[in-house]
Computed example of a mutant assay.
Amino acid sequence: MKYLFIGFGISLIIFVVALTTNDWSLLYKITGFVGLICLGIGALISGAFISGDRLGRNLNSESETDRRKRITFTNRIVLIGAPNIAFAIILFLLLN
């Protein structure tokens, strides 16, 4: 839950920056970029971009503790990126 609030905090900081510069397109561009970067990092760490046989070999070679840490980190980074993606989509639809 803490990481979801971090994501909302990042969106809020970007909102304040867009408010001070009076450039509203900047708002959904930066929040979308932050969200996509977080989702991309989460996908890379989770192994979403590798083939099944390679993923199986990786799962056999890593310990249960390492797997749990990797999954926890992936979930945390996705929770940070999710509010930014949602905020970017909503703002893009409202502003365009």
Rank of each mutant, 00 (worst) to 15 (best):
51 S>A: 04
42 G>I: 03
15 F>R: 06
35 G>A: 03
20 T>M: 10
25 S>T: 13
40 G>E: 07
39 L>E: 03
19 L>S: 11
20 T>G: 00
38 C>D: 07
35 G>R: 08
50 I>T: 02
16 V>P: 07
20 T>W: 10
23 D>I: 15
40 G>A: 12
39 L>N: 09
39 L>T: 01
13 I>A: 10
16 V>R: 15
36 L>H: 07
20 T>S: 11
47 G>Q: 04
46 S>L: 09
35 G>M: 07
27 L>M: 06
41 I>Q: 00
43 A>R: 11
19 L>V: 02
51 S>H: 06
23 D>F: 12
30 I>N: 01
26 L>R: 14
50 I>L: 01
11 S>P: 09
41 I>E: 07
17 V>L: 14
46 S>N: 12
46 S>K: 12
47 G>Y: 02
24 W>Q: 13
14 I>L: 11
43 A>L: 11
32 G>N: 12
50 I>F: 01
42 G>K: 03
39 L>C: 00
36 L>F: 04
34 V>D: 13
46 S>Q: 12
22 N>K: 15
41 I>M: 12
51 S>N: 04
36 L>M: 09
51 S>Y: 09
12 L>T: 14
20 T>R: 11
28 Y>C: 09
27 L>Y: 15
42 G>T: 02
37 I>V: 08
35 G>C: 08
29 K>C: 13
14 I>F: 01
21 T>F: 03
11 S>K: 03
44 L>D: 14
26 L>A: 15
46 S>M: 11
49 F>N: 12
10 I>S: 12
46 S>H: 15
29 K>S: 02
12 L>E: 04
13 I>S: 01
33 F>N: 10
25 S>L: 13
15 F>E: 05
40 G>W: 11
14 I>E: 01
41 I>Y: 10
26 L>G: 15
25 S>Q: 15
50 I>A: 04
29 K>Q: 10
32 G>A: 03
11 S>C: 13
24 W>Y: 06
34 V>E: 10
33 F>Q: 05
14 I>P: 06
48 A>F: 08
45 I>S: 09
34 V>H: 11
22 N>P: 00
33 F>E: 10
11 S>E: 08
38 C>E: 02
16 V>E: 11
44 L>Q: 13
27 L>K: 00
43 A>K: 08
38 C>K: 05
15 F>G: 02
26 L>T: 11
28 Y>K: 09
28 Y>N: 07
24 W>P: 01
51 S>G: 12
10 I>V: 14
19 L>I: 01
48 A>C: 04
35 G>T: 05
10 I>L: 14
47 G>L: 05
38 C>M: 07
32 G>W: 12
37 I>Q: 04
28 Y>T: 06
45 I>D: 15
32 G>E: 01
43 A>Q: 06
10 I>N: 12
39 L>H: 10
11 S>A: 09
47 G>F: 08
23 D>G: 00
49 F>S: 07
16 V>F: 15
14 I>G: 10
32 G>L: 15
44 L>S: 06
19 L>T: 05
50 I>P: 06
50 I>V: 07
45 I>T: 13
40 G>F: 09
20 T>V: 15
42 G>A: 05
40 G>C: 05
22 N>Q: 11
12 L>D: 00
41 I>L: 12
47 G>C: 09
18 A>H: 04
25 S>V: 14
33 F>A: 14
20 T>D: 06
